[in-house]
Design a protein around this nucleic acid. Structure first.
Ligand SMILES: [Mn+2]
Ligand SMILES: [Mn+2]
Ligand SMILES: [Zn+2]
Ligand SMILES: [Zn+2]
Lengths: 136, 136
DNA sequence: TTCCTTGTTTATAATTATTCTAAAGAAGAT
DNA sequence: ATCTTCTTTAGAATAATTATAAACAAGGAA
């Protein structure tokens, strides 16, 4: 449970002004027990539901991208009509339940170490992500 | 090098009528040495260039999805504004060069076996794909 | 062949996620 | 209080994809 004041400080420390909208978004995103996988639209609706205050869709986009750029959100590579984000920014992998369109965290130890044996001259590895698709 | 007649047979065997458009698309997609990673737009332009004949964008979409459904093309999970497809439908993984926006095949042996230690009741694993993002 | 049915192509419109624009508002500094 | 810079917002623009429906082509039967 992070207090409103803590969000204000974290935003300031990231040179993001602590606006009412951003604080509401923080509460929805980060005041929860488990990691949260969401689309912009999910988040847009949850803000209204959980805080009672409406934030414009444009602001949700702006804020999510600001947080993403600061490293507070991770984008999950999936083929979907919508982009998925994740509050768990540590290195980890995912199940994707194709029918339910839902992501489930896979811990690194659920997958085991992955050693990439090939390299491309002039390029270095930025991330290694495993996506496990699930069906019934 | 697959002949036009072979494409005709393969299409018929898949209960897809061998139209001029589909045969042209087959030539562009499957008459090549290496595996081919592409977007619909890439393919649309290549058809004009390589066959001299124009195929409507709608038909490119229709055909790619038909081939995808039949298992002749694979969709690659990536976050991009466009969907990427792959003529290599075997189980394999990818590098994604973020700057160049290009995919590079990773053989299974370049990655090593991946054993998923977690399971979800009622669901089974459909695919396991690794995406390795590259930066400079 | 000719006729008929069904599948396919196509131009075009519709849809939809995302980004852009520009004006109004809020935050922080002086 | 004033000024500057950042942020929010409604609405427009963009762009990938999908839907529509009419023209067309393939294949089978007669
Ligand atoms: Mn996750
Ligand atoms: Mn490939
Ligand atoms: Zn982002
Ligand atoms: Zn498809």
């Amino acid at each position: 449970m992070t207090s409103k004041q803590e969000f204000v400080e974290k935003l300031r420390n990231s040179s993001l002004r602590p606006t009412k909208q951003r604080i509401n978004i923080c509460e929805v995103l980060f005041n929860r027990d488990k990691t949260f996988h969401f689309t912009i639209n999910d988040l847009f609706n949850l803000i209204k539901d959980k805080t009672g205050e409406k934030v414009s869709l444009a602001t949700v986009y702006n804020t999510v991208h600001a947080f993403h750029k600061k490293g507070y959100l991770k984008e999950i590579p999936i083929n979907s009509n919508q982009t998925y984000f994740d509050t768990n920014v540590t290195d980890h992998h995912h199940f994707f339940d194709v029918k339910e369109e839902k992501l489930i965290d896979l811990k690194n130890e659920d997958v085991g170490p992955i050693e990439i044996q090939k390299s491309i001259p002039g390029k270095k590895i930025k991330s290694v992500e495993v996506l496990v698709k699930l069906e019934d």
